[in-house]
Amino acid sequence: MEFQNLKITDKGRIRYITINREAKLNALNKATLTELHNAFSDAFADPETGGIIITGAGPKAFVAGADISEFAGLDVAGGTALSRTGHTEVFNLIANGGKPVIAAINGFALGGGLELAMACHIRIAAENAKMGLPEVTLGLVPGYGGTQRLTQLVGKGKALEMILTADMITAADALQYGLVTHVVTADELLPKAEEILNKILTRAPLALAAAIRCVNDADTYGINGYETEITEFGKCFGTKDFKEGVAAFLEKRKADFKGE
């Protein structure tokens, strides 16, 4: 599939999705969101892809926000539809994907850009990165899951402070708050993301997908995450990967998982 706003590259079992609108600081317009839906759907369905790293083109921005010019003519119904479509087609798609997704935050991650990073399973940042949700300066609130995921990641008090002040935070702050798990130099950012993902990809693929479902259900209203864990734990016993993992452990060798 050809993309106008994304660059897709494969490195072994890692699929790189790079938002390639450097002149616009990789802002998320409707076309880019549509391409992200297609790119992630393809990556999750591709049996050769084990995990995904998403980043932004150039040294300045991961994603500096949404394309505000597209908001100007919207009314209540239009704004509601925009948010709902974004949730369903992109942000929830990523969060609920069965393959690990790492956001490599290489610069500004603001508004929809930070929401995109928060939808990913793991976030690492370059030391020059800046993050924030400035929507209230436009008379808006975060509309792509930002109020919910930021609260889950950093707690209610810090989430409210960040959202209500609209202030940007540094990568060091983000690490302290638990918003990212690692901060490295710009040159080390992608190698660090690959290091983490390659380690993950030595593990059993079906178990990885099950673990993502379990952790997500810990924060899903109306769902008992403990029950999800019990169910997923039991289902793992029916996989060939479980039998291989146990055999490898008992035989003191490296497991050869097939995702079966």
Results as ranks from 00 to 15, higher is better:
Leu116Tyr: 04
Leu116Trp: 05
Ala117Lys: 03
Ala117Leu: 00
Met118Phe: 05
Met118Ala: 06
Ala119Gly: 10
Ala119Cys: 12
His121Asp: 02
His121Gly: 04
His121Thr: 04
His121Asn: 01
Ile122Val: 04
Arg123Gly: 10
Arg123Val: 01
Arg123Lys: 02
Arg123Cys: 02
Ile124Leu: 04
Ala125Ile: 13
Ala125Trp: 00
Ala125Cys: 05
Ala125Phe: 00
Ala126Trp: 02
Ala126Cys: 05
Ala126Leu: 02
Ala126Tyr: 04
Glu127Asn: 13
Ala129Asn: 02
Ala129Arg: 06
Lys130Val: 07
Lys130Arg: 11
Lys130Glu: 08
Lys130Thr: 13
Met131Ile: 09
Met131His: 00
Met131Arg: 01
Gly132Ile: 05
Gly132Ala: 07
Leu133Cys: 00
Leu133Asp: 00
Leu133Val: 04
Leu133Lys: 00
Val136Arg: 13
Val136Ile: 05
Thr137Lys: 08
Thr137Ser: 13
Thr137Ala: 14
Thr137Met: 09
Leu138Phe: 11
Leu138Cys: 06
Gly139Asp: 01
Gly139Phe: 08
Leu140Met: 11
Leu140Glu: 02
Leu140Ser: 10
Val141Ser: 14
Val141Gly: 15
Val141Phe: 14
Val141Ile: 13
Pro142Gln: 07
Pro142Ala: 11
Pro142Phe: 05
Gly143Ser: 06
Tyr144Arg: 07
Tyr144Gln: 10
Gly145Pro: 10
Gly145Phe: 12
Gly146His: 07
Gly146Ala: 05
Gln148Cys: 12
Gln148Tyr: 06
Arg149Met: 00
Arg149His: 10
Arg149Cys: 06
Arg149Gly: 01
Leu150Phe: 09
Thr151Gly: 04
Thr151Val: 15
Thr151His: 00
Gln152Ala: 13
Gln152Cys: 14
Gln152Leu: 12
Gln152Thr: 12
Gln152Asn: 14
Gln152Phe: 13
Gln152Arg: 14
Leu153Asp: 07
Gly155Phe: 09
Gly155Asn: 11
Gly155Pro: 03
Lys156Pro: 03
Lys156Tyr: 13
Lys156Glu: 11
Lys156Asn: 08
Gly157Tyr: 09
Gly157Pro: 03
Lys158Ser: 11
Lys158Leu: 13
Lys158Arg: 12
Lys158Tyr: 12
Ala159Val: 13
Ala159Ile: 15
Leu160Thr: 14
Leu160Met: 15
Leu160Tyr: 14
Met162Ile: 15
Met162Val: 12
Met162Lys: 15
Met162Thr: 10
Ile163Gly: 00
Ile163Leu: 02
Ile163Asn: 06
Ile163Gln: 01
Ile163Tyr: 00
Ile163Val: 13
Leu164Trp: 09
Thr165Lys: 12
Thr165Asn: 04
Thr165Asp: 11
Ala166Glu: 07
Ala166Met: 07
Ala166Asn: 06
Asp167Ile: 03
Asp167Arg: 15
Met168Ser: 14
Met168Asn: 15
Met168Gly: 10
Ile169Phe: 06
Thr170Ile: 07
Thr170Val: 08
Ala171Gly: 10
Ala172Glu: 14
Ala172Ser: 11
Ala172Phe: 15
